[in-house]
Design a binder for these strands. Structure first.
Lengths: 203, 203
DNA sequence: CTGGTTTTTGAACATCGTTCATTGTGACGT
DNA sequence: ACGTCACAATGAACGATGTTCAAAAACCAG
């Protein structure tokens, strides 16, 4: 009898939590369901992680990594504008295809006054930095500090549109419409950025 | 002795919930704290509203109304571009000055599968419609359906930027920087929209 | 007052996340 | 083989929280 080879209990717990979130959403994540799925006792969670919040952040780590991988091919487009558009498009597609896990990235909140641990904040910033590269090429006239701000703006704008489209009705957002919407946004932003660089400069 | 004249119990409960959210954030809202502040019994909540979720939505109604009032003066700017910019600016300022109540508008989630009641969804759409008017003037070439989509996009983009700026560090987002960021976003979008209308049209 | 209707109450319940004394496990020395 | 010990895993128990509902209180017409 080949018994199931059991990975780390911590890994099994993160696996289980990921599956639970993917099925029932972040609010549907219950300690007892996770341990039942992982095949261990309730208290085992607190041997693996400090609390449920950390468990969610471990799942979010994976999602961020998968999102990064999904965004990687977009960098191979042949102009900064095309890369920006491809990134935004890939972002929207990823969100649509991983609704609940993607939502968990932004719906999760730690208790008031508790700061996100550095290891997790860094993961978010890696993602934003990846998006930043083509924008830096789009606006070579701006100093690095201003670029970082614009990247955050671009990311926030795309994210806001995708988020607004997905919140509410869980089904019924046609993929084509959302991609078109994001393309229109990024298109306008790119045109605006180029007009600004052609005209007076950074301001 | 002039006893405190007591308004509706329902009103007192919404008042109390609003104050609790403003002080401790949405996650800090506890049924027992609300009733203690309102000066009534625990179960009284369920005579006034169906559950805590509805109580939050009643508070959000008020916030939406105050937000609408804060946005109203922006409509008096003298060009569609100026109105759009003023709206976005007023939106950012309102978010900064009403952090927790504004956050509650978008952090609140009903249980999976439960739809937002129509009376509350309508309130959100009223707000978006108010933002839509100047954009319709900016793009007179588009049909009404496309306008609604673009309005949602514009709103989502501005909202996303403000949200990203405010999430995380509760203090330390300089108001001037956020307003500048939003202005840059809307400026680029307006330029992009005008370039599109000057060029080929809706596509 | 009286009877009935409505409002208010708060103890009790169900469901959470979290803790911790107890139990189980396996590696190591003798 | 045996005993020992450090560590991992367990799940009953605890406290916090949203919700219910039988009882009490308040109200009001006749």
């Amino acid at each position: 009898m080949a018994e199931d080879k059991k990975p780390d209990l911590r890994t099994r717990l993160i696996d289980a939590a990921e599956a639970e979130i993917a099925e029932k959403g972040l609010m549907g994540l219950k300690a007892r369901d996770v341990t039942a799925r992982a095949g261990c006792a309730l208290g085992a969670i607190y041997n693996a992680v400090s609390d449920l919040d950390e468990l969610v952040m471990r799942v979010n780590s994976r999602t961020l990594e998968r999102l990064g991988a999904a965004l990687a091919p977009a960098s191979r487009a042949d102009s900064p504008e095309a890369v920006t558009l491809a990134l935004a498009d890939a972002y929207a597609v990823f969100a649509l295809q991983n609704r609940r896990l993607w939502s968990a990235l932004f719906e999760h909140r730690l208790p008031e006054g508790v700061e996100m641990p550095d290891w997790h904040r860094a993961e978010h910033e890696v993602l934003i930095a990846r998006i930043g590269a083509p924008l830096a090429a789009l606006r070579p006239d701006l100093p690095e500090e201003a670029i970082r701000l614009r990247v955050r703006t671009l990311f926030g704008a795309v994210h806001g549109v995708v988020h607004l489209a997905l919140q509410g009705r869980l089904v019924g957002v046609p993929e084509a419409l959302l991609r078109q919407e994001v393309a229109a946004l990024v298109g306008a932003l790119v045109i605006g950025a180029r007009a600004a660089v052609a005209g007076g400069g950074g301001r």
